[in-house]
């Protein structure tokens, strides 16, 4: 059961990721989602927004700003705890591994918050996977360009055709137990040095 009355604050310097998370939360029925992408006067703004749940990028140094909300002194309007249950290590592990920290107003029951945390962890993980795939695609593209250049250099210096140049690169890579792109890189570097 989704508890749509909860007010959720998402603090993330990465606008794409926080938009993905907001969308996920809204799709699940949480209408009251606020996003903050700046750390300027963070605590004051959190007090203004007065959320029940705060979700924050683990890599953000401003996590230490939020720690002030754990205090019991009169400066703190609503004491906040991180996570719901000391014993729920699995939930904490999953969050930290996904790179997100969650702060919850003291006294909120676990069942009310769990679906939010599950959603957050899965969206953070999905974002991470997408970023990784994008990085990989970029690397592959760069590798292909490098191999094209190396082929061109070999065709010119050895007077061979394209297929033969490629075969030469591949054979060298296999002999030296290296990746094709690495061999291509050394061909390009060598050409720059001697060319």
């Amino acid at each position: 059961m989704v508890d749509v009355t909860l007010k959720i604050l998402v603090i993330d310097e990465n606008p794409v990721r926080s938009a993905i998370l907001e969308e996920g939360l809204r799709d699940s029925g949480y209408a009251d989602v606020v996003r903050l992408d700046t750390t300027h006067e963070l605590l004051r703004r959190i007090y203004q927004i007065d959320p029940d749940v705060i979700l924050m990028d683990l890599a953000d140094p401003s996590r230490d700003v939020l720690e002030q909300m754990f205090q019991v002194s009169r400066m703190v309007k609503r004491p906040v705890a991180m996570f719901v249950d000391q014993s729920d290590t699995a939930m904490i592990e999953a969050s930290v591994d996904a790179g997100v920290s969650a702060y919850i107003v003291d006294g909120l029951r676990k069942e009310r918050v769990k679906p939010i945390l599950d959603m957050t962890v899965s969206r953070f993980n999905a974002f991470e996977r997408l970023s990784r795939e994008l990085d990989q695609a970029r690397t592959e593209l760069a590798d292909r360009k490098l191999i094209e250049r190396a082929k061109g250099i070999l065709m010119k210096s050895r007077g061979v055709g394209e297929d033969e140049a490629y075969a030469l690169l591949r054979k060298t890579a296999m002999n030296e137990k290296k990746k094709l792109a690495e061999i291509a890189q050394s061909v390009v570097t060598a050409a720059q040095l001697f060319g």
């Binding site: 890599a59 953000d60 996590r63 230490d64 720690e67 904490i92 592990e93 930290v96 920290s101």
Partner: peptide, 15 residues
């Protein structure tokens, strides 16, 4: 690490 909060959490988790 980027925050003291991370330091503490990763100590708790055994990282």
């Amino acid at each position: 690490e980027t925050s003291w909060a991370n330091i503490r959490d990763r100590i708790v988790l055994g990282h």
